[in-house]
Structure formats: C-alpha cells, structure tokens
Write a protein that binds this DNA or RNA. Sequence first.
DNA 1: GTCTATAGCAGGATAGAC
DNA 2: GTCTATCCTGCTATAGAC
Lengths: 189, 189
Amino acid sequence: MPYPPTRKPQSREKILQSAAKLFTRQGFGQVSIDQIMADAGLTRGAFYSHFADKGSLYAEAMVYAARHRFAYYTASANTDDLLAYLLNTYLSQAHVTEDALPCPLAFLANDVSQRDPQVRNTYTRIYKGLVKRLPTLSRHDPERNACLAVSALMIGGVAVARALDDPAMVGELLAACREASFQILGEPG
Amino acid sequence: MPYPPTRKPQSREKILQSAAKLFTRQGFGQVSIDQIMADAGLTRGAFYSHFADKGSLYAEAMVYAARHRFAYYTASANTDDLLAYLLNTYLSQAHVTEDALPCPLAFLANDVSQRDPQVRNTYTRIYKGLVKRLPTLSRHDPERNACLAVSALMIGGVAVARALDDPAMVGELLAACREASFQILGEPG
DNA sequence: GTCTATAGCAGGATAGAC
DNA sequence: GTCTATCCTGCTATAGAC
C-alpha cells in the first residue's frame, strides 16, 4: 500500500491552498491546472482524483480564500473597534500588494461575472456574508444601506488600486476610501 | 486596385469598435482575434495590417470604450445637474446588463491588473480623467478625496453587481451606492 | 488590404501502468 | 492515489496568393 489513506486529504488541502493563492491573484483563465498541481508538489494527472474539473476547484478555492482572509482579521485584531480595524486592513497597501491571501471579492469580481452559475452563486454567498457581518463588528449599528455601500467601496477601492500603475495615486485612493467609509458608517475615523 | 485607400481606416474603426464591445464585456483572455475580426466582418489574417498585436488593440479599445461612454453621458443629459445624472446612469441596471458600451474602469479593473505596463498606464490615465472630471460636473465643488471615493464606489458597485446572481440584491446594492455617493459629495439625492 | 493555410504552442481532460 | 503519455481543441502569429 504505497499511498496511505491519510495522504489524500492532505493532498486535497494542498491543492486547495495552491489554487486559492494562484486563482485569487491571477484569475481563472490565467492559471493552469499544471501550475496549481506543480505548486502543490503533484502532477497534472492526479488532479482529477480530487476535483471534478477546473471550475469546481475555482469555486472551492474562493470559499477557502474568503475563510482564510476572515480568519486573518479576527486573529490579529486586539482592539475593541473591529470594524475600524477591518477597514484599515482591507483598504491597505499590504492587501493590494498581496501580503497574505487576498480577498476574492475584490480580486475576482470581474472574473466571476463570466463564470458559470455555480461560481457566481458562490461569490454571491460570500458577498452576502460580508454585508451581514459588517454590522456585528460595529458598536454604532449601521444601517443595511450603509453596509452595502461600504462593501462596494472596499471592493472597488482595492480593485482599482491594484490596476493603477501610480503608487502615489494608490495611497491617495486608499486613504480617501477609508475616510469615506467612516463617513458613510457614521463612525469617527 | 481592388481595395480603395478609403477602406483601411474604415476597417480599423470597425475592428476597434468590435474589440471595445467584446473586450469590455469578456476581458482580454476570453476574446480571440478570430471573434473580433469575425464581428468586424473580416478574417484573422487581416488583423496584423492594422495592429501590432492583441495587447495593443486591447489598450486602444479601452480608450475607445471610455470615450464612447463619456459621449453617451454628455449627449443624453438634458439637466443642469450633470453629476447626479452621471451617478444615476452609471450605477444603474442598464449599465450592469450592458446596454451600450460599458465602462472599462468597472468591467476591466481586475483584468488590467495582470496586463503589461502599457495597458495599466492606459487604465490609470482613464481613471485619472474620471476623477478630474467629476468636480467640473458638480455645482457644489466637491473635494478631491470625495471624488476619489465616489469613483471607487461607482466602479466597485458596478463590478460587484455584475458578479452577483441575485437581481434583488443588485437593485439594493446599486441604490445604496447612489445614496452613499450623494452623501459623500454633500449633494442632495 | 484581405484572403486561405499553416506553423507552433498551450492547456483541459482521459487512459493505463504502478 | 499518483504517475507518465496522449488526444484534442483553440489560439497567436506568420507566409504567401490575389
């Protein structure tokens, strides 16, 4: 028995991790199964023992990235104002330059628009999760409309910042988005 | 002389028009030169008489789409509040569902992040053009920070709306973004 | 300037050995 | 479960006829 049963879940996890990293940064079409499997330390042929096809992996990788990103916030926050912490971390240079696992909502918004219904549904559920979670982080109990707008501002700010080639402009943009977010939420900056 | 000299600029214009339409909706990788040329009524071989390669066409098509979209606003506006008109038209169902030529800033933000420097520079110039133009449309002379945030809100709102699979949520999101935009700008809705 | 034909490559998915 | 080898498709870019 050359392959012990404990290895399969490990391989699956490794593939998922590599896929989340590569897909969020580069999108569906720019990443090949070869690249993902190589990054996970495996070869292409082994892929189909774990996932039905490339699209299924993409959807699962988005969820993986979203979970990981949320854990990243809650783990490192030692403040009582979680919402402010979230906004300052999300709308930051570090996020734009891909410090850790980036947020799929901001990095894959355009990409998802052209994918199959399953993928779009996954994206929608992740987005709804964010909108619903925002009020629980604030002490000021913001309205739903404010949360919708702020989520779009977060995602748009990061997406645009990533496309720009002017570092000064990126800094200016992120700062303006943080400021406006607090204004919309009625919180002090 | 089977091909009169007047035909080349016409062909070029047609290619550009088809490219703008297809690229903005589907992104760089999802559109082939074949598709573009077929849409323009030509064949693949003729492409390289007009453009150096696919990337050059992509950059030019973004500019073409941006110009066309701006003309779309100014042409149809018979109001004294141009900024309000712009926001309501940009953050609309019609824009998300691609009525006319969509805005490349919103439809291609993620796509541009992975392209070559020339493309990113083109995107940056278009974006700076938008930010600079916003104050000229308003009677309230908004601050630069407000314009930066509103532009990100416009782009993010449309980009997210396009990815979602829930029509009710899309309507809610767009309305919330319009409302927040006016709040940021200090204008009445 | 536009066409047809093709070179050359990359990637998704499958088959079969171990 | 993982590997190597392969089929098949689609694409960019070029060559050469008209």
